[in-house]
Design a protein around this nucleic acid. Structure first.
Lengths: 351, 351
DNA sequence: CTGAAAGCGCTTACAG
DNA sequence: CTGAAAGCGCTTACAG
């Protein structure tokens, strides 16, 4: 709903330029878009005047008249999370290069807030929306906020509830299943038998998929996974430290863990250190994301590279490609992730 | 182009609602803004129809007519840098709460790209601009891009060149001088005498200020600082690792370093470890920023808390406060930073 | 309380 | 090549 916003002082418009050059607004408009219809002399006079008066193009007015858009809405959970910050940087890079502007919104991982953010952003007329859904966000509510026509791309997570067949959206997902399989297979190849899956929430899409990949690889290797070897945590370092006890206070204790992500793995490494266990020597672990720190921490962390900035670029490219073709929605892209082997995934102490 | 099977529905406008309710557009417009002029019965009919047809308010059209803006442009160097990502998160939080939307742009620390980004953003009619200037960006060029009327807030760094008296902007700066003084005084109090300043570029505003604070504190304590104790690096961890040699391959080697920021301090810690020196035991150091990692690394890093997310909120509040008062620009806010003492700033080995 | 009309700054057929 | 005119979706005096 409208609210009162800041007044703007009178700006230079086409009318001012047209009057000063003694031509019509139409001619100035054509000059602005470098139309070949305007003769050289007129064009130069107009351009000089545009410069002189400090004319600033009003893209909103042009968009209104042409019924076009020059913005893309980007809604992420939290820019404080480097994964999303990098993703946003990638999106903005491509969006900007394409001559669009990025409308930013963040949800703080709250479906309620996401609803408000989407409702606000859509009023600004974005050409499309890139959404990294908050946990628990439902397809129906998102559609309510954005309307049935809006080109959309979901990143990283699926919406809950039924997908309306009338208006599917594009999806860009990491291959979480395969990634967790790769990490698990690597630890098995190193000789581990008692391997746990540590961290993340079961209810999130990536959490489910990474667990599924882990369990699939374990099953193929005919290795048992006790229920107590599946330990949940919030997907951040602090909560991982807290949750580490549930992982390590077991008998028999696992010799290795596939961690939900790097943040969680780093938290586990901290707790191992506190207990006098050296990660990469007394305990093997892998992460997911390949954040900068993974290469720099000691021991360096074996992890799965997801290249979030490149994913952002890719998301923007996919959405921009859709802008002219609303009927073609529904494409799902799964991006392979790459195992980066470093020191943390050592063989088991006994081996 | 829409296929004949899936005719694209035209967007619902005030006209559609007015026609369906058999009232004028004006009445619908009044309902949208909860004007008390509309009688209850009419209002309810209109609201039901808005809901039924899935009406989406076109804020761009309203802004055009009212000559208002409902967006704020935010231009940062790089969202991949957690400091700026947190700052952006804080800005967006307040901007969104105020009913505005954030237009995002990033410069990659290039004054050229910044110019292009500003020129593009300004065409979308933001009510104001929050700019964390790229290194080397000049006041004149920024004014060229944004025009003389645009409310602006500079964060973290000053523009180069002469500030036009006609259109000053607000400034929000960290108290870098005092911060570096605090860190230096703390190391001196711990007993250090050979203290270096490590990392960052001399040409950046924060770099100059932090060095100045360091030198001032050293001077007050009557401690000498050889030129070789001032070591430059890019403000990131990787380049700090590279530059560490220049710091540590000296005779006499410093016993402590005030580092430009946390990233640089962490890089130095890595290199110390490689050389068999334990930071926080064999060598003391302090950071700047208090990134999450500072508390979690071992030994925990003494640093200066800048609270970038809160700075983002503050920047947004300052700019929003200015929107109605363009004549009052020119305010400069310097934010105190807080020394957080942790294990890394040990006394010197000899002491 | 409600409607008719003008206008925000632009673009785009359409004439000439 | 250039101009007059209509219109994008909204708001806002002004009348009634």
């Amino acid at each position: 709903m409208p609210s009162s916003h800041a007044p703007v002082r009178r700006k230079v418009t086409l009318i001012d330029i047209a009057a000063a050059c003694d031509v019509s607004r139409a001619t100035v408009s054509l000059v602005l878009r470098n139309s070949p219809l305007v003769n050289r002399h007129t064009r130069e006079r107009v351009q000089a005047e545009l410069q002189r008066q400090g004319y600033i193009y009003n893209r909103a007015a042009a968009n209104l008249r042409r019924r076009t858009s020059s913005s893309i809405a980007l809604v992420v959970n939290d820019l404080g999370n480097p994964f999303f910050a990098e993703f946003a940087a990638g999106v903005d890079e491509v969006v900007g290069t394409a001559g669009f502007v990025t409308l930013l919104g963040s949800t703080g991982e709250s479906a309620e807030r996401q609803q408000a953010v989407l409702s606000s952003l859509v009023e600004h007329g974005p050409g499309g929306v890139i959404l990294s859904p908050a946990e628990g966000s439902e397809a129906g509510r998102v559609m309510d906020a954005l309307g049935p026509q809006m080109p959309m791309l979901m990143f990283n997570r699926e919406l809950e509830g039924e997908t309306p067949a009338s208006a599917p959206w594009d999806i860009l997902m990491l291959d979480n299943v395969r990634g967790a399989e790769l990490a698990t297979e690597h630890l098995i190849a190193q000789g581990h038998r008692r391997i746990a899956f540590f961290g993340g929430h079961t209810r999130s899409t990536p959490g489910q998929q990474r667990r599924a990949g882990f369990l699939a690889a374990m099953k193929r290797a005919k290795l048992k996974v006790p229920g107590s070897y599946l330990v949940e945590s919030a997907p951040n370092r602090l909560d991982a430290v807290r949750a580490s006890a549930a992982l390590l206070d077991q008998d028999p204790v696992p010799t290795a863990a596939v961690c939900y992500n790097d943040a969680v793995a780093l938290g586990l490494m901290l707790e191992l250190g506190r207990r006098g266990l050296r990660p990469g020597r007394d305990f093997a672990l892998t992460g997911f994301d390949n954040i900068d720190e993974a290469a720099l921490v000691s021991p360096a962390l074996t992890t799965l590279a997801t290249a979030p900035r490149e994913r952002g670029r890719q998301a923007a490219r996919l959405l921009l490609a859709r802008l002219g073709h609303p009927q073609e929605h529904g494409q799902c892209t799964t991006v392979p992730v790459e195992l980066v082997i470093r020191e943390s995934s050592c063989p088991p102490p006994a081996a």
